[in-house]
Nucleic acid binder design. Structure first.
Length: 825
DNA sequence: GATCCTCGAGTTCA
DNA sequence: CTCGAGGATC
């Protein structure tokens, strides 16, 4: 309690020192000396004194950790020295190689490394000027992060004022903000009891907390911090090894991982890896590996960097975590093309920090290979980065009396027969667009970002609109009314809540907030339930408010749909969802033909004029266009205001291939090869002459008997004859429409194939792709020896490795940007 | 006919 | 990201 007789300034100083010491002992030395209650009492006393003497408040006072005002947004911070990412290693061999490279380059045996656990948190940078914390930022993309100073100030493990002495005028300390496991659990327990927001896992908890706009919220989250590196330094010196620097940081008041150590040589590294691996489960925080850094700074400078990652450090990751769980059921999903994909529903299990409940089994063959059955205990793993997969079944845990799983005979959604093409792995529902699942998926695809890009049209909404018959096909989207959407919205809002009521075995009116305690539904689900529950008794005002919100929502959606009406041919073709026509093929078709009115009436063989389109794809497009229902949908779309803005004449490059000879090849007539097609084209003036000629005339034209027979036999089918004459007519019309080849504009990257990998910082992947294409390059998705060069952004993965393996040229982002700038893009 | 490249399609979770 | 299969090439 404040004592009126003592000098308040002196008492305030004393309290601050006591509190700082307590913090230091608690967070840095891990050796608390005063009980929490005592700490709180001192803090309260300080707070009261300061409120009586506001002139004595300083920004580094322990009471000033929580700023009062939420900010509108985070401003950007440019890192003076980029915050790099580390290369990853998963195997012992990679570590041995890493160490050997350093030995060779430095000409030193068994170099020393500073080693420490790699925390699974959020990398941040802290800037101190004259020993005072002035700014903190997230790592962001490495070059630029977000200013989260106000939030970082609330973390007690971060000193507001450096201790000791001898610190540089400007010191930037880097480290990881994380949430200790015990605190994370305690926080969630509390949140569940008091209806707060439950955090998904410690990592996301830490990341989400730092992104709070209101620091008062961040202050309530149990965040901690470990320093692991130094960034910018001005006006002062640091020791010349990393381990000494860490020690120095500790003296200045930063927590440094107690597990950090110094080891020598590859064997030292691997020994440390195993040691930490054993302790992993007992550590008070999540780690995903260990980090090795060459200890002396001079060696580090000598080693330098490879495209954005230091050559003197590496992260040795622990293997993807595997977990055991139980299969609750094996379900199937019906995709846009009717593909029926089996997947497992499992009892929730934590794998690598997230809760996994489902995993795909890809296809029936995979299920048979694994022999997964209902009730089986299985091992799940998060493959690569994210996607859960079933590794194997644990046979000794299989319950008695199970039978192997088999694909159902009928589509679970529409009851049509499931069929499998000869030699194909997938089973498909034969219901096509009569199948509700396929219709929904088709609409979802149409609305997706890379297709028509209708924002806000989610899966569940499509389901509701589709089930209520408001939309039967994609064209119906363009005559949805506000009323349709409002009706759907009501269902959308209620269905989550209805489900809970049922589960709890209560009627809606019996529900109270108390019910939250008895169950463990997700926080968002509880939120919507609570909201929905509130509206029941409260009557008019609440309903009115909800109606307003819903109307605004519906208006926004109508506007989004309206915006999507203006589109490009490429997007339009892709959106139609023709089998085998993805983004790349849609783009090619758009580029070569240029006009939907032309394309929609083209016989299928003409599509083979487009590179990378062969018989299978061409037929698939033809099949789609042959169906009157599909033509009707195209009509309706255009009639309801869909406008293609980039209609243009066919590409001049088409001209070369528009001959009777190529057409005859493209028709895939039995026994008619390239040579025979050319002979026929030379002997007959046009398709009509060919159609009218008797078989022996083909022989006269120089064809061997079997080819002549093949052609004649093929033409006996009147569909074939019609296809030939239609195609020939289309060919003639195309020729008329196609402008003569203009002088080809030479792009600097003509004929080159480029692959992008990793995260680019200066521009988005799509932008980079567009710019490279503008210079004539082809941007491909995977690396091969034909690749001209690979642009490796940050955290580049397997594609970069592949490129190195094949000796393909690698550009970093800077080089790409310089090149693009040099060519005016 | 074999082989190598690409593209398409399906997928999970926050 | 990964798998499967279509297309191009030799």
């Amino acid at each position: 309690m404040p004592k009126s007789d003592s000098n308040p300034a002196i008492r305030i100083d004393e309290l601050r020192r006591q509190l700082d010491d307590a913090n230091y002992r608690y967070y840095v030395l891990d050796d608390p000396t005063i009980p929490d209650a005592e700490y709180d009492r001192l803090l309260r006393e300080l707070d009261e004194l300061e409120s009586v003497h506001p002139e004595l408040v300083t920004p580094d006072s322990p009471t000033q950790r929580v700023g009062a005002t939420p900010s509108g947004a985070f401003s950007e911070v440019r890192h003076a020295i980029p915050m790099l990412s580390l290369g990853n290693a998963f195997s012992d061999e990679e570590i041995v190689d890493f160490e050997r490279r350093i030995e060779q380059k430095l000409g030193r045996k068994r170099p020393k490394f500073s080693v420490e656990p790699k925390l699974d948190g959020l990398a941040i940078s802290l800037r101190y000027e004259d020993g005072r914390f002035v700014r903190g930022a997230t790592r962001g993309d490495g070059a630029t992060g977000e200013d989260v100073t106000a939030n970082l100030r609330t973390i007690k493990a971060i000193p507001l004022q450096l201790r000791g002495e001898g610190w540089p005028e400007v010191l930037e300390v880097r480290g990881e903000v994380y949430m200790p496991l015990a605190d994370f659990r305690r926080y969630n327990e509390h949140a569940l009891e008091h209806g707060g927001k439950v955090l998904a896992n410690p990592r996301n908890g830490a990341a989400g907390s730092l992104r709070q706009l209101d620091p008062r919220i961040t202050a309530k989250r149990p965040l901690a911090f470990y320093a692991y590196a130094v960034g910018e330094v001005e006006g002062g010196d640091l020791p010349d090894t990393h381990s000494q620097t860490l020690k120095q940081l500790r003296e200045w008041g930063f927590p440094v991982s107690v597990e950090s150590a110094v080891v020598a040589g590859a064997d030292g590294l691997l020994g440390y890896y195993r040691e930490v691996g054993k302790k992993r489960d007992k550590l008070p925080f999540d780690i995903d590996g260990v980090v090795y850094k060459l200890d002396d700074y001079e060696g580090q400078r000598e080693m330098g960097f490879v495209s954005r990652a230091p050559r003197w450090a590496i992260a040795h990751k622990f293997p993807a975590q595997e977990q055991m769980t139980v299969v609750e059921s094996i379900e199937v999903n019906v995709g846009r093309t009717g593909a029926v994909t089996p997947w497992v529903l499992m009892q929730p299990v934590q794998v690598g920090g997230v809760t996994v409940t489902r995993a795909t089994l890809h296809n029936a063959d995979q299920v048979a290979r694994l022999d997964v059955r209902n009730g089986d205990t299985v091992i799940v793993r998060r493959a690569g980065d994210v996607i859960p997969e079933v590794v194997r079944v644990v046979p000794e845990r299989r319950p008695a009396g199970t039978k192997p799983w088999s694909m159902p005979g009928l589509c679970p959604v529409c009851g049509s027969e499931l069929v499998r093409e000869e030699g194909e792995a997938v089973w498909r529902c034969s219901g096509e667009l009569t199948c509700a699942a396929q219709r929904k998926e088709a609409i979802g695809h149409f609305a997706s970002r890379r297709a028509m890009d209708i924002e806000g049209l989610g899966e569940r909404l499509i389901e509701i609109l589709s089930d209520s018959d408001s939309i039967r096909n994609v064209a119906d989207l363009y005559r949805l009314t506000l009323d349709d959407l409002l009706t759907a919205k009501a269902l959308l809002d209620s269905d989550s809540a209805e489900g809970f009521v049922e589960l709890l075995g209560k009627s809606a009116s019996q529900l109270t907030y108390q019910d939250e305690v008895v169950s463990d539904f997700s926080p968002t689900a509880w939120e919507s339930l609570a909201e929905w529950n509130q509206r029941l008794p409260s009557g008019y005002a609440a309903k009115w408010n909800r109606a307003k919100v819903a109307t605004k929502w519906a208006e926004n959606l109508v506007e989004a749909i309206d915006r999507s009406r203006t589109t490009t041919l490429e997007r339009f073709l892709y959106a139609l969802g023709i089998q085998h026509v993805g983004e790349s093929t849609a783009k090619a078709l758009a580029g070569w033909f240029g006009d939907i009115e032309l394309i929609r009436h083209l016989p299928w063989p003409l599509f083979k004029r487009v590179p990378d389109v062969g018989g299978e794809v061409a037929r698939s497009i033809g099949h789609f266009l042959d169906q009157p229902g599909n033509q009707q949908v195209i009509d309706d779309l255009l009639e309801r205001g869909v406008t293609i803005t980039d209609t243009h004449p066919p590409s001049p490059k088409l001209r070369d291939g528009l001959t009777l000879a190529t057409l005859l090849q493209d028709l895939e007539i039995p026994k008619v090869t390239k040579v025979r097609a050319e002979q026929l084209a030379a002997a007959f003036r046009g398709a009509d002459a060919l159609l009218d000629a008797p078989e022996h005339n083909y022989v006269t034209a120089g064809l061997p008997a079997d080819s002549a027979r093949g052609l004649a036999g093929w033409l006996e089918d009147e569909h074939h004859a019609k296809l030939l004459s239609d195609s020939a007519a289309a060919l003639t019309r195309l020729l008329e429409l196609t402008p003569a080849a203009a002088a080809a504009v030479q792009g600097p990257l003509d004929g080159q194939t480029v692959v992008l990998t990793g995260t680019l910082t200066g521009l988005s992947r799509d932008e980079a792709k567009a710019k490279l294409e503008a210079l004539g390059a082809k941007v491909a998705g995977s690396v091969s020896k034909k690749t001209s060069f690979v642009v490796a952004g940050e955290a580049a993965g397997s594609k970069l490795d592949k490129a190195q393996e094949l000796g393909v040229e690698i550009w970093d982002e800077a080089r790409l940007l310089a090149f693009l700038a040099g060519h005016g893009v």
